[in-house]
Structures are given as structure tokens and as C-alpha cells.
């Protein structure tokens, strides 16, 4: 990224990041107490939503993992048992669900690496937002060839 663009964008970024704690002056006259504190640097912003998405994808992948170990364990029963169960997965509905699963795994992996960089790289916290944009860009760049190849296997027979 060139320096000119970065310095041009700085004022806007600082304004967007201004920390607001507690109720704003507009709501002070009202008797109603707000249920939640107003937005902060974290709440309602990229940091919070990437955390939510990390949890949701993590739980989803974990429950899939139980099913995946169980169905693979059928190889120990008999070749017929395994092929029969795997055969029930070979249809367009499961094929599209597999795209969702790989999408969830890919987001969880890339965002996990972002978390590692935030924790261990001294410059990490400063770039956390930009790294989330990188996560999104890499996600699209890696999902595109996978979706094309996988769906052509699923729909092409």
C-alpha cells in the first residue's frame, strides 16, 4: 500500500474509531435507561462480528466433526456399509452444504491466523481491521476455484 493513500485515509479512520463510552448527550434528558452501553471501539464493530463469526463457524465445524468421524468409522464395519452411507451424501443438496462447510472452515482458519497475528505480532493489534479485510479477500480468492471445481464434480456427475 502506498504512503499517500494511507495518510489520506487516516483522519476518516480516526473519526470512525472515536471511542464512545456510556450514553451520548442526546439521550441524557430521557428517563429511559439504555439496555446496552453505546457503541465502543469493540462493540458492534469488526472485532465483535469477527469474534461472533469465529464462534458460530467453530461450533458448526465441531458438530460436523463428530458426524465425520462416525461415518468414516464405517470403513471398519464393511466396504458396503461405508459406500452406502457415503452414497447418500452424493447429491446436489449435500454438495452445496459441503461448499458451506468448506467456507466455514476457510473463514475459521484465516481468522484464526489473524487472531494469532494479533496476539503474537507486535504490530498485530494495529492492523487487526486491515487483516480482516485480508481474511475476506483471501476467502473469496480461495473459495472461487474450490466452488467451481467442487460444484462441477457435484453437478457434472
Amino acid at each position: 500500500m502506498n504512503a499517500g493513500r494511507a495518510s489520506m485515509r487516516r483522519p476518516a479512520r480516526l473519526a470512525a474509531h472515536r471511542v464512545r463510552t456510556g450514553p451520548t448527550s442526546r439521550s441524557e434528558g430521557k428517563a429511559r435507561v439504555p439496555k446496552a452501553p453505546a457503541g465502543t471501539l469493540y462493540r458492534g464493530r469488526e472485532g465483535m462480528w469477527s469474534w461472533v463469526a469465529h464462534r458460530v463457524t467453530g461450533v458448526g465445524i465441531f458438530f460436523f466433526l463428530f458426524a465425520h468421524v462416525l461415518d468414516t468409522a464405517l470403513v471398519r464395519v464393511s466396504p458396503e456399509a461405508y459406500n452406502e452411507v457415503i452414497g447418500t451424501y452424493k447429491n446436489p443438496i449435500v454438495g452445496v452444504m459441503e461448499v458451506g462447510l468448506v467456507g466455514a472452515v476457510l473463514f475459521h482458519a484465516l481468522n484464526g491466523l489473524r487472531i494469532v497475528l494479533i496476539d503474537f505480532w507486535s504490530e498485530g493489534p494495529r492492523h487487526q481491521r486491515r487483516m480482516l479485510v485480508g481474511v475476506g479477500a483471501l476467502w473469496v480468492a480461495l473459495m472461487a476455484p474450490f466452488v467451481v471445481r467442487h460444484l462441477s464434480h457435484v453437478f457434472g456427475g
Binding site: 454438495g95 459441503e98 468448506v102 474450490f146 471445481r149 467442487h150 464434480h153 457435484v154 456427475g157
Partner: peptide, 9 residues
Amino acid sequence: NLMVGDGIN
């Protein structure tokens, strides 16, 4: 398992 050869098939 998914990209090489015939992929999932």
C-alpha cells in the same frame, strides 16, 4: 480429497 482427480466423486 476434494480437488485432486475426480474430487468428491
